[in-house]
Nucleic acid binder design. Sequence first.
DNA 1: TCCATATGTCAGAATATCCTGACATATGTC
DNA 2: GACATATGTCAGGATATTCTGACATATGGA
Lengths: 113, 113
Amino acid sequence: MDVHADTRAELTGDELVKLLDALSNPQRVRIVASLANGRNYVSQLARDLRMSRPLLHLHLQKLEAAGVVSSVLELSNDGKAMRYFEVTPFVLELSPESIARAARTLSEKKEDE
Amino acid sequence: MDVHADTRAELTGDELVKLLDALSNPQRVRIVASLANGRNYVSQLARDLRMSRPLLHLHLQKLEAAGVVSSVLELSNDGKAMRYFEVTPFVLELSPESIARAARTLSEKKEDE
DNA sequence: TCCATATGTCAGAATATCCTGACATATGTC
DNA sequence: GACATATGTCAGGATATTCTGACATATGGA
């Protein structure tokens, strides 16, 4: 995603849709909210959110694909491999105008009037 | 929705999810983009966007339920009933922080750490 | 009356999403 | 070795979303 303030101008239509799609789910909103308090690894996050690990894994994949979160694999003191997730900082202004601009870069399909 | 600048502070979690859900679809993004250029009635919009009318009707329902668009039924000069749709003006700032705040007002489900 | 326009809605197919319950691997400790 | 932790993935069911085609209504004009 990389909407990191001044890092880039604006998202493409496809990127925007993908981002909104990732965030248009209560579970994923809870995940992002939890990670906004600090990074965490999958199993612990699953316990915190009372969510099955495979399901959480699925949601995290979608969030990561949309660029909302990122992850790194680290080794703990006792040698366990742990994947830490953290939120990508971003600020996005959503309005009919910004949506209209994004729509111009939507792939596939026909154009309009 | 009513995120009309100073009209209200912030959306609830459920409202936000509903809004993002309505906007997380390429077809609906195209619809909003088209209506941002000015209001239009259903049949004409369907032709403009090369979309079947029942399908457009479905998308408009979802957009209207989320508060993104609104509609009025008007009588044309030749007496035809026409439903005009227009976009609701709104500005929404989307960021991990705003999402975290919205998450606190999500209904159902358990809370987290 | 017949044809064009507009409106709305329903049934069902085709997909996509969401979720659980297994299964697999690897490491360190008892 | 058995048990705890961590990781990942797959199969399949339950739902939800997306879309088309057909049907219904109503109005005005030829």
